[in-house]
């Protein structure tokens, strides 16, 4: 089996939302010792970009977008540890860390933002829900993301977004990452008040904001 074949299978698996096939193709890639960066870029990344375009055109919908991102993630879980062994790293548009703040267990909006960012070529780390400020700080130190996204669905948990920003400041990390916020009670005004860098009213806007903050668009 050639690298070409692996690339085709990985791309197809993302387009078909076929997680099993993605895992099996990723394992074959490792076994065959093909160029892993190449199969990620030309297989998985091309596939997910195509999915992102289809979503933007209204041809496919959220469950498909989320599952495509999930399929890519499963393959990467196999490929990335191998890359690290080779001391190589994949070139994404940027690294984004996402989490729902402490006291809030809502995940759907964040999952959708994660999928949209993935489909737009970003490397996304979703660290879950009910994430305390210290955990955000710890993960920023460990993963060195370009952007941190803070999600909150409740009016009562909204102040936690400020708490995380304050914690990042205290640790001297605030100028090393861009911070974006989202969630039903959030707003542009709130973002300005707590000193966040950006705000997205929906997932598509979140992608635009991240692109703008990282200099990919105006």
């Amino acid at each position: 089996m050639s690298a070409e074949n692996i690339i085709k299978r990985l791309k197809r698996s993302v387009l078909d939302y076929n997680t099993d096939e993605a895992v099996s193709a990723a394992k074959d890639a490792v076994k065959l010792g093909v160029d892993l960066l190449k199969v990620i870029e030309e297989g998985l990344a091309k596939g997910i970009r195509e999915v992102g375009e289809k979503f933007a055109n209204g041809e496919i919908f959220l469950p498909e977008l989320v599952m495509a991102a999930e399929t890519m993630k499963r393959a990467l879980e196999i490929l990335e540890p191998e890359l690290r062994k080779e001391k190589r790293e994949r070139k994404a548009l940027g690294k984004v860390l996402l989490g729902t703040v402490a006291g809030d267990i809502h995940s759907i909006g964040k999952t959708i933002v994660a999928s949209m960012l993935t489909a737009n070529g970003f490397e996304v780390y979703d660290i879950g829900e009910d994430v305390p400020a210290e955990k955000f700080v710890e993960k920023v130190k460990e993963l060195k993301p370009d952007v941190v996204g803070l999600s909150a669905l409740l009016t009562t948990t909204l102040p936690e977004q400020r708490t995380v920003i304050e914690a990042l400041k205290k640790e001297g990390l605030r100028d090393k990452v861009k911070v974006i916020i989202g969630g039903a009670p959030a707003s542009m005004e709130w973002a300005e008040e707590i000193g966040a860098d950006g705000y997205g009213a929906d997932a598509a806007e979140a992608v635009e904001v991240v692109k703008r903050l990282l200099g990919y668009s105006k």
């Binding site: 939302y17 959220l62 469950p63 498909e64 989320v66 599952m67 999930e70 999952t111 959708i112």
Partner: peptide, 8 residues
């Protein structure tokens, strides 16, 4: 349920 195959 958003990542479930059943949803898809």
């Amino acid at each position: 349920f958003i990542r479930e195959r059943h949803t898809l």
